[in-house]
Design a protein around this nucleic acid. Sequence first.
DNA 1: ATAGGGTTAG
Length: 812
Amino acid sequence: MTMSAAAGLLAAALPVDVAALANSYAAHLNRLAPLATASPRLLLRRLRALHGRILTSGFAPRSHIRNRFIDLYAKSGDLTAARSLFDAAPRPDVVARTTLVVAYANSGNLKLARQVFDEMPLGIRDTVSYNSMISAYSRAGEGGPSAELFCGMIRSGLCPDDYTFTGVLSAAAAVPDIDLRQCEQLHAAVVKYGSESVVSVSNALIALYFKCSPAQAVLSARRVFDAMLARDELTWTTILVGHTRRGDLDGARQLFDGMSQRFDVVWNAMISGYVHQGHSSEALDLFRKMNSEGVPMDEFTYTSVISACANSGLFRLGKAVHGCITRSGGIELSPEAALPVENALVTLYCRSGELDRGRRVFDRIRAKDSVSWNAILSGCMDSVRIDEAREIFAAMPCKNRVACTVMIAGLTQNGFGEEALRLFGSMRAATAGGIDPCDYAFSGALAACAGLGALEHGRQLHGQLIRCGYPASNSAANALLTMYAKCGAVEAARLVFLGMSGPDGVSWNAMVAALGQHGHGSEAVELFEEMLQKEGIQPDRITFLTVLSACNHAGLVDEGLRYFRAMEEDHGFTPGEDHYAQVVDLLGRAGRLAEAMEVLQSLPSDPSPAMWEAVLSACRIHGDMELGVQAADKLLEMSPRHDGAYILLANIYAAVRRWDDVARVRKLMKDRQVKKEPGCSWVEVAGEVNVFLVDDASHPEIREVYRFLEVLGARMRKAGYLPDTRFVFQDVEQGQKEQALSTHSEKLAVAFGMMKLPPAATVRVFKNLRICGDCHAAVMFMSMVGEREVVVRDGRRFHHFKNGACSCGNYW
DNA sequence: ATAGGGTTAG
């Protein structure tokens, strides 16, 4: 017999007033409850002590005592203890179950919370248990499940109360593009169940209407606001923030100035409104006014102001605010309250380029949260300190969705696409925490596919994206569109574009680029003209860059020049270096090298590397040795590790068969350690290498390239990527057709033939060769890979290869 | 046992 069992028997034998004991335990637990916020660790110690005493006393726990324990264990952070108590209950009641739902929801594990909720017998569910689950979803921004539960509770005859409505309304506010009609239906439900006079419900309703895009929604919000008999500080912040988020800063300011009694926190709302709209100076003016009027500031004020500085590049001011906070020791912030401020400071220092200082602030934070980790992680990525970012990521205790997304985007942008895709693939695995990727994570992964030319992988992601239900996310759709476009699947890109409910400027730019890059130059220009007519879509600097590039690819030189002029004259954009580089490229590619050089010489500042690169590439196409070498010299002088310069220079030499010079350039690259990042796109390498495949197949340089291609092909097959032909076909599409067809397709056939492609890729290469009209190259390719017969369809045309010969025709 | 706004990371 164990000690506790013996004590239990003893206790049972004694005439103890069990009810009195229960009351004293309950009172004890009530006294402990405030510790949940003040000091969870102390709470846990006390709880364990009390729990131990109860166990040894042999007191058979009453359910309300047990429930209290479950609640407090969860609040002290020991979910395991909470769960085992719950499991030990013979018949857990609604309260126990609801407590556990809330416990899991608060720990961020919505799935477990929902599981406990679902296991709750329908008969015992009450309004509070529904409310708890609904508000859990609402805090997580999950509008769908919250609405579904709301309907479920009405169906089962339960009456929604003000808690229900605040939850459902605020969840609905998190739904992107919430329908005005749905808002009105919810509003009607509020009225029907008599909650319209509750301040919190009205507040949530106002917030909801402001999130709803149609302009008349604002009027509805104002009507609710005007009808309110009592308003609290939340009402005011909601209405102020609502106006500012819709860009109506003046409206907000009028309300703010007209308030008879100004709650202190309302200043924060106004400041954050200015910050959000990028009006940093007004935000800071208000901050100063707040200071001079002696309005008490809190952590929200500091956080807003510091992030205003970080966002608008006012780093010195931000640091001054930091100094003020530290100096005025009078403001005592608890560690919890200081955390967001410190997090904002990490971002401030990282953005100002002082990563090490950001790191020091970060290191000093005692209880770092996920935001702290993510801030320093993204700081490292932005400063291209990839290894450090990898270390941080590995060390992070909380690799959440944002952390993964930052990593994926950062890796992709810095040429580690494969690593990014591996991470994306592993994040949803249970071992990594089972994180469902959000639309931003998808767009990072899709960008990685775009960079790698991994069309098949991208297609799979498309499928997953649909299954995960992100049809409305512009960021995901834009990435998808770009992925298809970069992988050469223009039609798929077009379908994505057409399927979007509200394509934004980025979408339009991406679609124009997609058309432009694949030889549909005039269509690209047409789409651009359509974009100009579109209401609510404004062309930006990127748009013009894209149009110039489209004209460039399609050989629409004069149109390009016209748009270049219109950009400044009609739209008021001063051309940047990138625009000039595009124009130089446009002229150069068209063989108008003299004009290109004129542009270069007329620049207000020195030409950028990109412009010299354009000149160099034009020289490659047109075989202008002299100017080409000059441009390469310039480029290498400016950036000695610019890999493109070496490759283009080698190309120029290869074009005139100066193999010794090619070898010299390659050796120089080696000596100077000009290396592509290990994760760089293989496809790009293949395209690059391909240019060495200029006739002379017996030359040692070329043989080396062949060997390289074989290795490359093996690696790609192993990783499951299909090679992409676009880099090679780009030459074909960019004019020079006759020449390109006679040389490039053949080279391509040889190159891809050497790579021993999997069957699906073989078909694609064959199709592309046929579309280029090069029968000879297609036949050569097919015999290299040992195919006997292949039929591929291209629209209504088909291409047929059989017994060493090609034919083509129409299906109907 | 349950709620609403304002802050920080992509």
